[in-house]
Nucleic acid binder design. Structure first.
Lengths: 189, 189
DNA sequence: CAAAAGCGTTGTCATAGGACAACTTTCAGG
DNA sequence: CCTGAAAGTTGTCCTATGACAACGCTTTTG
Protein backbone atom coordinates (compact mmCIF):
# COMPACT_ATOMS: atom_id res chain seq x y z
CA UNK A 1 0.00 0.00 0.00
CA UNK A 2 2.55 2.56 1.10
CA UNK A 3 5.71 1.07 -0.35
CA UNK A 4 6.22 3.74 -3.02
CA UNK A 5 5.57 6.58 -0.59
CA UNK A 6 7.93 5.05 1.95
CA UNK A 7 10.64 4.74 -0.66
CA UNK A 8 10.07 8.33 -1.69
CA UNK A 9 10.53 9.51 1.89
CA UNK A 10 13.56 7.31 2.42
CA UNK A 11 15.16 8.79 -0.67
CA UNK A 12 15.08 12.20 1.04
CA UNK A 13 16.09 11.30 4.59
CA UNK A 14 17.03 8.24 6.65
CA UNK A 15 14.04 7.37 8.80
CA UNK A 16 13.01 4.45 10.99
CA UNK A 17 9.88 2.38 10.37
CA UNK A 18 7.99 3.97 13.25
CA UNK A 19 8.38 7.40 11.70
CA UNK A 20 7.38 6.08 8.31
CA UNK A 21 4.23 4.59 9.82
CA UNK A 22 3.45 7.83 11.54
CA UNK A 23 3.67 9.62 8.23
CA UNK A 24 1.90 7.14 5.98
CA UNK A 25 -0.97 6.64 8.41
CA UNK A 26 -2.14 10.15 7.51
CA UNK A 27 -2.48 9.33 3.82
CA UNK A 28 -5.67 7.95 2.26
CA UNK A 29 -5.80 6.12 -1.07
CA UNK A 30 -7.62 7.85 -3.93
CA UNK A 31 -8.39 6.39 -7.34
CA UNK A 32 -9.11 8.71 -10.23
CA UNK A 33 -10.43 8.27 -13.75
CA UNK A 34 -9.15 10.03 -16.84
CA UNK A 35 -9.61 13.81 -16.65
CA UNK A 36 -10.89 13.74 -13.10
CA UNK A 37 -10.79 17.11 -11.40
CA UNK A 38 -9.05 17.10 -8.02
CA UNK A 39 -9.21 20.83 -7.47
CA UNK A 40 -11.27 23.20 -9.57
CA UNK A 41 -10.85 26.91 -10.11
CA UNK A 42 -12.32 28.82 -7.20
CA UNK A 43 -11.98 25.98 -4.70
CA UNK A 44 -9.52 26.09 -1.83
CA UNK A 45 -7.16 23.16 -2.28
CA UNK A 46 -7.09 21.07 0.88
CA UNK A 47 -4.97 18.11 -0.12
CA UNK A 48 -1.49 17.22 -1.13
CA UNK A 49 -1.16 14.16 -3.36
CA UNK A 50 1.50 11.54 -3.76
CA UNK A 51 1.32 9.78 -7.13
CA UNK A 52 1.75 6.00 -6.99
CA UNK A 53 0.71 5.53 -10.57
CA UNK A 54 -0.57 7.97 -13.14
CA UNK A 55 -0.10 11.58 -14.03
CA UNK A 56 -1.50 14.91 -12.85
CA UNK A 57 -1.54 18.31 -14.45
CA UNK A 58 -1.85 21.75 -12.91
CA UNK A 59 -3.08 24.49 -15.20
CA UNK A 60 -4.70 27.88 -15.37
CA UNK A 61 -7.06 29.45 -17.88
CA UNK A 62 -6.18 32.98 -18.95
CA UNK A 63 -8.54 35.80 -19.88
CA UNK A 64 -8.57 34.73 -23.53
CA UNK A 65 -9.64 31.23 -22.56
CA UNK A 66 -6.27 29.66 -23.28
CA UNK A 67 -4.90 27.02 -20.95
CA UNK A 68 -1.44 27.45 -19.48
CA UNK A 69 0.17 24.51 -17.73
CA UNK A 70 1.94 25.22 -14.45
CA UNK A 71 3.48 21.79 -14.35
CA UNK A 72 3.00 18.07 -14.71
CA UNK A 73 3.70 15.45 -12.08
CA UNK A 74 4.36 11.79 -12.79
CA UNK A 75 4.66 8.80 -10.44
CA UNK A 76 6.90 8.99 -7.37
CA UNK A 77 6.28 12.65 -6.89
CA UNK A 78 4.00 14.93 -4.92
CA UNK A 79 1.78 17.73 -6.11
CA UNK A 80 -1.10 19.98 -5.14
CA UNK A 81 -2.59 23.25 -6.30
CA UNK A 82 0.27 24.77 -4.36
CA UNK A 83 -0.59 28.43 -4.33
CA UNK A 84 -4.08 27.73 -3.06
CA UNK A 85 -2.86 25.09 -0.62
CA UNK A 86 -0.19 27.35 0.83
CA UNK A 87 -2.14 30.58 0.96
CA UNK A 88 -5.56 29.02 1.60
CA UNK A 89 -7.13 31.13 -1.07
CA UNK A 90 -9.49 30.08 -3.86
CA UNK A 91 -7.42 28.44 -6.53
CA UNK A 92 -6.72 30.01 -9.89
CA UNK A 93 -5.51 26.61 -11.02
CA UNK A 94 -7.18 23.34 -11.94
CA UNK A 95 -5.59 20.12 -10.79
CA UNK A 96 -6.66 17.13 -12.90
CA UNK A 97 -5.48 13.57 -13.47
CA UNK A 98 -4.63 13.06 -17.11
CA UNK A 99 -4.77 9.29 -16.73
CA UNK A 100 -6.59 6.93 -14.35
CA UNK A 101 -4.28 7.28 -11.36
CA UNK A 102 -3.61 5.79 -7.95
CA UNK A 103 -2.90 8.55 -5.48
CA UNK A 104 -2.33 8.94 -1.78
CA UNK A 105 -3.92 12.06 -0.35
CA UNK A 106 -3.17 13.91 2.85
CA UNK A 107 -5.30 16.76 4.10
CA UNK A 108 -3.89 20.12 4.95
CA UNK A 109 -4.26 19.87 8.73
CA UNK A 110 -2.42 16.55 8.89
CA UNK A 111 0.13 17.80 6.41
CA UNK A 112 1.18 20.78 8.51
CA UNK A 113 1.06 18.74 11.70
CA UNK A 114 3.58 16.40 10.14
CA UNK A 115 5.69 19.29 8.87
CA UNK A 116 5.80 20.77 12.36
CA UNK A 117 6.37 17.58 14.35
CA UNK A 118 8.24 15.16 12.10
CA UNK A 119 11.59 16.57 10.95
CA UNK A 120 11.91 13.99 8.16
CA UNK A 121 8.61 15.11 6.70
CA UNK A 122 9.56 18.76 7.03
CA UNK A 123 12.63 17.86 5.01
CA UNK A 124 10.51 16.17 2.34
CA UNK A 125 8.35 19.25 1.99
CA UNK A 126 11.31 21.58 2.10
CA UNK A 127 13.03 19.66 -0.67
CA UNK A 128 9.87 19.54 -2.75
CA UNK A 129 9.47 23.26 -2.66
CA UNK A 130 13.14 24.01 -3.30
CA UNK A 131 12.98 21.78 -6.33
CA UNK A 132 9.70 23.28 -7.50
CA UNK A 133 11.22 26.75 -7.26
CA UNK A 134 14.38 25.78 -9.09
CA UNK A 135 12.31 24.12 -11.79
CA UNK A 136 10.15 27.20 -12.22
CA UNK A 137 13.18 29.44 -12.52
CA UNK A 138 14.67 27.08 -15.06
CA UNK A 139 11.51 27.27 -17.11
CA UNK A 140 11.50 31.05 -16.99
CA UNK A 141 15.09 31.16 -18.16
CA UNK A 142 14.48 28.57 -20.83
CA UNK A 143 11.17 29.71 -22.21
CA UNK A 144 11.23 33.49 -21.99
CA UNK A 145 14.01 33.93 -24.49
CA UNK A 146 13.86 30.83 -26.66
CA UNK A 147 12.15 30.37 -29.97
CA UNK A 148 9.61 27.60 -30.31
CA UNK A 149 11.90 25.09 -31.93
CA UNK A 150 14.42 25.49 -29.13
CA UNK A 151 11.78 25.08 -26.45
CA UNK A 152 10.79 21.80 -28.08
CA UNK A 153 14.39 20.65 -28.16
CA UNK A 154 14.73 21.70 -24.55
CA UNK A 155 11.86 19.48 -23.41
CA UNK A 156 13.14 16.61 -25.52
CA UNK A 157 16.40 16.86 -23.67
CA UNK A 158 15.24 17.66 -20.15
CA UNK A 159 11.78 16.14 -19.79
CA UNK A 160 11.43 13.59 -22.60
CA UNK A 161 8.76 11.64 -20.73
CA UNK A 162 6.34 14.50 -21.25
CA UNK A 163 6.44 14.04 -25.02
CA UNK A 164 5.68 10.33 -24.96
CA UNK A 165 3.14 10.35 -22.21
CA UNK A 166 1.18 13.55 -22.46
CA UNK A 167 -1.11 14.92 -25.17
CA UNK A 168 0.36 17.42 -27.60
CA UNK A 169 -2.24 19.92 -26.62
CA UNK A 170 -1.17 19.83 -22.97
CA UNK A 171 2.52 19.95 -23.87
CA UNK A 172 1.89 22.97 -26.09
CA UNK A 173 0.22 24.75 -23.17
CA UNK A 174 3.31 23.96 -21.10
CA UNK A 175 5.61 25.44 -23.73
CA UNK A 176 3.54 28.56 -24.23
CA UNK A 177 2.49 27.95 -27.81
CA UNK A 178 -0.61 26.73 -29.66
CA UNK A 179 -1.01 23.08 -30.55
CA UNK A 180 -0.91 23.86 -34.25
CA UNK A 181 2.44 25.59 -33.85
CA UNK A 182 3.77 22.64 -31.86
CA UNK A 183 2.59 20.27 -34.56
CA UNK A 184 4.37 22.27 -37.27
CA UNK A 185 7.56 22.42 -35.21
CA UNK A 186 7.49 18.66 -34.69
CA UNK A 187 7.24 18.19 -38.45
CA UNK A 188 10.31 20.38 -38.90
CA UNK A 189 12.64 18.42 -36.64
CA UNK B 1 22.66 48.28 12.34
CA UNK B 2 20.28 45.37 12.34
CA UNK B 3 16.98 47.17 12.82
CA UNK B 4 15.65 46.47 9.33
CA UNK B 5 16.64 42.81 9.46
CA UNK B 6 15.08 42.43 12.90
CA UNK B 7 11.85 43.97 11.66
CA UNK B 8 11.88 41.67 8.68
CA UNK B 9 12.20 38.61 10.94
CA UNK B 10 9.58 39.89 13.34
CA UNK B 11 7.16 40.30 10.44
CA UNK B 12 7.40 36.55 9.82
CA UNK B 13 7.35 35.19 13.36
CA UNK B 14 7.15 36.43 16.93
CA UNK B 15 10.63 36.17 18.43
CA UNK B 16 12.38 37.39 21.55
CA UNK B 17 15.42 39.67 21.48
CA UNK B 18 17.80 36.86 22.40
CA UNK B 19 16.81 34.91 19.31
CA UNK B 20 17.06 38.02 17.17
CA UNK B 21 20.58 38.61 18.44
CA UNK B 22 21.50 35.02 17.77
CA UNK B 23 20.35 35.44 14.18
CA UNK B 24 21.72 38.88 13.42
CA UNK B 25 25.13 38.13 14.94
CA UNK B 26 25.79 35.87 11.95
CA UNK B 27 25.28 38.67 9.42
CA UNK B 28 28.09 40.93 8.23
CA UNK B 29 27.57 44.32 6.61
CA UNK B 30 28.51 44.67 2.96
CA UNK B 31 28.57 47.87 0.91
CA UNK B 32 28.39 47.66 -2.85
CA UNK B 33 28.87 50.12 -5.68
CA UNK B 34 26.76 50.35 -8.81
CA UNK B 35 26.94 47.18 -10.91
CA UNK B 36 29.04 45.31 -8.39
CA UNK B 37 29.09 41.59 -8.95
CA UNK B 38 28.22 39.54 -5.87
CA UNK B 39 28.23 36.18 -7.61
CA UNK B 40 29.53 35.59 -11.10
CA UNK B 41 28.70 32.83 -13.55
CA UNK B 42 30.68 29.71 -12.68
CA UNK B 43 31.15 30.59 -9.02
CA UNK B 44 29.46 28.67 -6.25
CA UNK B 45 27.30 31.15 -4.37
CA UNK B 46 28.14 31.07 -0.68
CA UNK B 47 26.07 33.90 0.72
CA UNK B 48 22.53 34.95 1.27
CA UNK B 49 21.91 38.69 1.35
CA UNK B 50 19.44 40.88 3.16
CA UNK B 51 18.95 44.24 1.48
CA UNK B 52 18.85 47.21 3.84
CA UNK B 53 19.04 49.72 1.04
CA UNK B 54 19.46 49.28 -2.69
CA UNK B 55 18.53 46.81 -5.32
CA UNK B 56 19.92 43.52 -6.62
CA UNK B 57 19.30 41.63 -9.83
CA UNK B 58 19.72 37.96 -10.64
CA UNK B 59 20.15 37.11 -14.30
CA UNK B 60 21.43 34.57 -16.74
CA UNK B 61 22.99 34.88 -20.19
CA UNK B 62 21.60 32.53 -22.81
CA UNK B 63 23.46 30.94 -25.72
CA UNK B 64 22.68 33.89 -28.00
CA UNK B 65 24.22 36.27 -25.50
CA UNK B 66 20.90 37.73 -24.35
CA UNK B 67 20.34 38.46 -20.69
CA UNK B 68 17.30 37.02 -18.95
CA UNK B 69 16.39 38.31 -15.52
CA UNK B 70 15.40 35.71 -12.92
CA UNK B 71 14.22 38.35 -10.53
CA UNK B 72 14.87 41.63 -8.82
CA UNK B 73 15.01 42.24 -5.08
CA UNK B 74 14.51 45.58 -3.39
CA UNK B 75 14.99 46.66 0.22
CA UNK B 76 13.55 44.62 3.07
CA UNK B 77 13.97 41.38 1.20
CA UNK B 78 16.48 38.56 0.93
CA UNK B 79 18.14 37.12 -2.13
CA UNK B 80 20.97 34.93 -3.35
CA UNK B 81 21.90 33.04 -6.47
CA UNK B 82 19.48 30.45 -5.13
CA UNK B 83 20.03 27.52 -7.40
CA UNK B 84 23.77 27.62 -6.85
CA UNK B 85 23.38 28.31 -3.14
CA UNK B 86 20.96 25.42 -2.63
CA UNK B 87 22.63 22.85 -4.84
CA UNK B 88 26.20 24.04 -4.27
CA UNK B 89 26.91 23.94 -7.95
CA UNK B 90 28.62 26.56 -10.11
CA UNK B 91 26.10 29.28 -10.78
CA UNK B 92 24.51 29.86 -14.16
CA UNK B 93 23.34 33.20 -12.79
CA UNK B 94 24.96 36.51 -12.07
CA UNK B 95 23.96 38.37 -8.94
CA UNK B 96 24.71 42.10 -9.15
CA UNK B 97 23.73 45.25 -7.31
CA UNK B 98 22.08 47.70 -9.68
CA UNK B 99 22.59 50.57 -7.25
CA UNK B 100 25.10 51.28 -4.47
CA UNK B 101 23.55 49.12 -1.77
CA UNK B 102 23.82 48.34 1.92
CA UNK B 103 23.53 44.63 2.45
CA UNK B 104 23.84 42.17 5.29
CA UNK B 105 25.47 38.91 4.24
CA UNK B 106 25.36 35.52 5.90
CA UNK B 107 27.51 32.64 4.75
CA UNK B 108 26.09 29.27 3.84
CA UNK B 109 27.36 27.38 6.88
CA UNK B 110 25.88 29.86 9.33
CA UNK B 111 22.72 30.04 7.26
CA UNK B 112 22.00 26.33 7.48
CA UNK B 113 23.02 26.20 11.13
CA UNK B 114 20.39 28.81 11.83
CA UNK B 115 17.83 27.01 9.69
CA UNK B 116 18.45 23.80 11.62
CA UNK B 117 18.62 25.23 15.12
CA UNK B 118 16.46 28.34 15.20
CA UNK B 119 12.83 27.60 14.27
CA UNK B 120 12.03 31.26 13.63
CA UNK B 121 14.80 31.43 11.06
CA UNK B 122 13.68 28.18 9.47
CA UNK B 123 10.30 29.83 9.12
CA UNK B 124 11.84 32.91 7.50
CA UNK B 125 13.62 30.75 4.95
CA UNK B 126 10.60 28.56 4.42
CA UNK B 127 8.41 31.56 3.73
CA UNK B 128 10.97 33.09 1.41
CA UNK B 129 11.10 30.02 -0.73
CA UNK B 130 7.34 29.49 -0.79
CA UNK B 131 6.94 33.06 -1.92
CA UNK B 132 9.70 32.75 -4.49
CA UNK B 133 8.04 29.66 -5.91
CA UNK B 134 4.60 31.26 -6.04
CA UNK B 135 6.10 34.32 -7.71
CA UNK B 136 7.84 32.20 -10.32
CA UNK B 137 4.66 30.30 -11.11
CA UNK B 138 2.80 33.57 -11.41
CA UNK B 139 5.35 34.83 -13.87
CA UNK B 140 5.09 31.67 -15.94
CA UNK B 141 1.34 31.98 -16.05
CA UNK B 142 1.47 35.66 -16.82
CA UNK B 143 4.26 35.76 -19.34
CA UNK B 144 3.99 32.54 -21.32
CA UNK B 145 0.67 33.37 -22.89
CA UNK B 146 0.55 37.16 -22.89
CA UNK B 147 1.45 39.55 -25.63
CA UNK B 148 4.03 42.23 -24.93
CA UNK B 149 1.62 45.01 -24.20
CA UNK B 150 -0.21 42.88 -21.63
CA UNK B 151 3.03 41.91 -19.92
CA UNK B 152 3.83 45.59 -19.58
CA UNK B 153 0.40 46.32 -18.13
CA UNK B 154 0.87 43.37 -15.79
CA UNK B 155 4.09 44.77 -14.32
CA UNK B 156 2.59 48.22 -14.06
CA UNK B 157 -0.16 46.72 -11.96
CA UNK B 158 1.75 44.15 -9.92
CA UNK B 159 5.29 45.45 -9.61
CA UNK B 160 5.17 49.16 -10.46
CA UNK B 161 8.34 49.89 -8.51
CA UNK B 162 10.34 48.04 -11.13
CA UNK B 163 9.39 50.54 -13.79
CA UNK B 164 10.43 53.60 -11.83
CA UNK B 165 13.54 52.22 -10.27
CA UNK B 166 15.13 49.90 -12.76
CA UNK B 167 16.61 50.50 -16.22
CA UNK B 168 14.42 49.73 -19.20
CA UNK B 169 16.96 47.32 -20.47
CA UNK B 170 16.79 45.22 -17.30
CA UNK B 171 13.00 45.36 -17.18
CA UNK B 172 12.85 44.20 -20.80
CA UNK B 173 15.01 41.20 -19.93
CA UNK B 174 12.59 40.44 -17.10
CA UNK B 175 9.62 40.56 -19.46
CA UNK B 176 11.25 38.44 -22.12
CA UNK B 177 11.48 41.07 -24.84
CA UNK B 178 14.11 43.35 -26.33
CA UNK B 179 14.58 46.87 -25.05
CA UNK B 180 13.54 48.36 -28.37
CA UNK B 181 10.25 46.46 -28.24
CA UNK B 182 9.66 47.63 -24.68
CA UNK B 183 10.35 51.19 -25.74
CA UNK B 184 7.82 50.98 -28.56
CA UNK B 185 5.21 49.43 -26.30
CA UNK B 186 5.69 52.21 -23.75
CA UNK B 187 5.08 54.77 -26.48
CA UNK B 188 1.81 53.01 -27.37
CA UNK B 189 0.24 53.15 -23.92
C1' DC C 1 35.98 69.64 -19.00
C1' DA C 2 36.20 66.51 -22.78
C1' DA C 3 35.76 62.13 -24.67
C1' DA C 4 33.68 57.86 -24.64
C1' DA C 5 30.52 54.55 -23.44
C1' DG C 6 26.00 53.21 -22.56
C1' DC C 7 21.02 53.84 -22.69
C1' DG C 8 16.62 54.96 -24.72
C1' DT C 9 14.02 56.04 -28.89
C1' DT C 10 12.54 55.40 -33.44
C1' DG C 11 12.59 53.63 -38.11
C1' DT C 12 12.76 49.79 -41.59
C1' DC C 13 12.55 45.11 -42.74
C1' DA C 14 12.01 40.09 -42.19
C1' DT C 15 9.90 36.27 -39.94
C1' DA C 16 8.04 33.26 -36.19
C1' DG C 17 4.03 32.07 -34.73
C1' DG C 18 -1.03 33.11 -33.69
C1' DA C 19 -5.90 32.81 -35.63
C1' DC C 20 -8.83 30.35 -38.22
C1' DA C 21 -10.45 26.72 -41.04
C1' DA C 22 -10.68 22.19 -43.34
C1' DC C 23 -9.47 17.78 -43.10
C1' DT C 24 -7.76 13.27 -41.10
C1' DT C 25 -6.77 10.27 -37.34
C1' DT C 26 -7.32 8.44 -32.85
C1' DC C 27 -9.62 6.39 -29.17
C1' DA C 28 -12.97 6.32 -25.27
C1' DG C 29 -17.22 4.59 -24.09
C1' DG C 30 -21.25 2.36 -25.19
C1' DC D 1 -16.67 -3.57 -32.68
C1' DC D 2 -18.90 1.05 -33.83
C1' DT D 3 -19.31 5.69 -33.63
C1' DG D 4 -18.90 10.40 -32.40
C1' DA D 5 -16.08 13.68 -30.21
C1' DA D 6 -11.68 15.13 -29.35
C1' DA D 7 -6.97 15.48 -30.86
C1' DG D 8 -3.67 16.21 -34.33
C1' DT D 9 -2.17 17.98 -38.98
C1' DT D 10 -1.67 21.22 -42.49
C1' DG D 11 -2.68 25.31 -45.18
C1' DT D 12 -3.38 30.43 -45.65
C1' DC D 13 -3.11 34.84 -43.95
C1' DC D 14 -1.65 38.52 -40.88
C1' DT D 15 0.50 40.75 -37.01
C1' DA D 16 3.69 41.18 -33.14
C1' DT D 17 8.18 41.38 -32.33
C1' DG D 18 13.16 40.45 -33.18
C1' DA D 19 17.32 42.17 -35.71
C1' DC D 20 19.75 45.92 -37.05
C1' DA D 21 20.95 50.61 -37.51
C1' DA D 22 20.98 55.67 -36.78
C1' DC D 23 20.61 59.23 -33.64
C1' DG D 24 20.38 62.06 -29.41
C1' DC D 25 20.74 62.24 -24.46
C1' DT D 26 22.84 61.02 -20.12
C1' DT D 27 26.38 59.29 -17.26
C1' DT D 28 30.90 57.95 -16.25
C1' DT D 29 35.71 58.49 -16.19
C1' DG D 30 40.23 60.13 -17.15
Amino acid sequence: MFTELENYIKSVDAVDQKTLDEITSRFKPVQTVRNEMLCNIGQVCNHFYFIKRGCLRLYEIDEKGNEITGYFALEESIISANTSFMLQKPSRDCLVSLEPSELLAINRKDFYELVNTVPAFAKVYHQFIEFAFIHSQMRIYSFLGMEGIDKLRWVMEHEPKLLTRISSKAVASYLGMTNSTLSKLRAKL
